[in-house]
Amino acid sequence: MTFDYHEPTSVREAIELSARFGGDGRFLAGGTDLMVQIHRGRLNPRHVVSLQCVPGLDGIEVDGAVRLGARVTHRRLESAEAFQGALRGLAEGAEVVGGHQVRNVATVGGNIVNASPAADVVVVLLALDATLTCLGPAGERTVALDGFATAPGVTGLRPNELLTRASFPRLAPRSATVFLKAGRRRAMEISIACVAARVTLDDLERCQDVRIALGAVAPTAIRARAAERHLEARPLTDGLMRETGRIAAAECRPIGDVRASARYRALLVATLVPRALARCLERIKLGAP
């Protein structure tokens, strides 16, 4: 029931503590998932290692690439100036999670390592080709977000490693991002399906680069690769976008649960994908000089 509480003050110390406790230890960031799991009796760590005093984990850096420290909160994503333009999809993914109280503490890193298939921000990061930096006793390594989660709650994070940041390249000109989600209520919802889209158009209004990522319709957040390929070098017409939605719906693998049926989830994918693409197109047009 109870545990020891640790508050390391450096990344190095955090990793050392984690190495020492092994499976008995858990990192604590916002606690929006960990504390609920402990309350429900699903997790019972002997040691909780808080990251709140570890420096260097809460930066949002934008230069050649965009780097998000693992402890950056959802509220900061939604209010950051950097995510009001072409990267608006990231703010959109953040601002639909929980209420203000949750978003004030829930972190990007926590969202990624929880590996919930319905993690909204992860879906956007997937569409942004994000990579992750993991620091362990053996040093730092970089891995792709795509494929990092392998099953609900399971990731490729090695024992004793700490996820320190997520990074993604800056967008080319004539790009836009959009995030859409469906839930039973208008707030406080875990997605029953969500879609993130990133579109870059060439000078002839054709898709130069497209990513479509889906949440809550497979054991992990996934990219809809067949749907992405279908758009390559083609202009985004209404018909094409609808076709793409159907392709994405065919390649997702939803389950039915207390929140929604598999059939409805697939139907939502078929609907939300074309809407997200259409909104990207709209944004690119509005943003064009």
């Binding site: 509480y5 504390m35 808080s50 503490v105």
Partner: peptide, 10 residues
């Protein structure tokens, strides 16, 4: 913040 998921120690 929700005080129910915040450790006093934090």
């Amino acid at each position: 913040v929700n005080a129910c998921i915040l450790l006093a120690a934090q």
